[in-house]
Amino acid sequence: MNSIEVHNLTVAYNQLPVLWDVDFELPKGQIIGIVGPNGSGKSTLLKAIMGLFPLSSGYVKVLDSSLEQMRSSIAYVPQRETVDWNFPASVKDVVEMGRYQPGKLFRKLSNVDKQLAVEAIEKVKLTPFMDRQIGQLSGGQQQRVFIARALAQGAEVYLMDEPFIGVDVATEKAIMDLLQAMRDEGKTIILVHHDLQSVTANFDYLVMLNTRLVTHGPIQEVLTAENLQSTYGGQLNLFSQLQQLIQTKDFPIREKGFEDK
């Protein structure tokens, strides 16, 4: 069984193709890093998997089923700067959001839901800060709030967008320990990461991305100088010229209605 399967995925943002024919299957129960330079489509890939972007082509499968069927089994941890931290909410308020379900928003949360939120806060070691307004936390603590919210959901697969950004070394290690504990319980963690320094020791599996998929596989197999060169060595000239052409001419990224028989 695969945690995530992406087939022929093409996504355009403002007509500019940011992901091009990406195709992979990811294993379960591992810590999987998605790496690549800035603007290589890493965050877009996560959002596309979560159904936040219209796909120009291809499809996504979560745990061998459609996203709609598996929504409760997949949790999304967005980048920290996507919210206004002045929002009047406490740590507990935010973590409880992990238990919100569509169609049940007019009903009260059950005691079980609340208990699960409290346990999730415990797991990320934020119990003393439970009632603190989220703006009064450090960057690392804010990141842990988001992780706790995902944990509260009780998902199998976790998609995390840059969880280590703006976090000090000690917190980075604390978060990594937490992710490893989650993995050891059989959870799958897929995280976007921009920095290669701290990767090798902790990830099991790597997806190397630069608009198109460079390669993917167990980390010891794919972390080669050649792959790093194709991932970070800059965009190929011809390729980026074509990307620009598609945007300026507003060309349909995938044509429809003409097929071989």
Binding site: K47, M50, G51, L52, E68, R71, Y76, P78, T82, V83, F87, A89, D93, V94, M97, Y100, Q101, P102, L105, F106, L109, Q153
Partner: peptide, 19 residues
């Protein structure tokens, strides 16, 4: 809960299937 999660982070609400 609906207004709250939508005001806080609409994109996250969407990933949970909330309209």
């Amino acid at each position: 809960k609906g207004f709250q999660i939508h005001a806080f982070q609409a994109e996250y609400a969407q990933t949970k299937g909330i309209s």
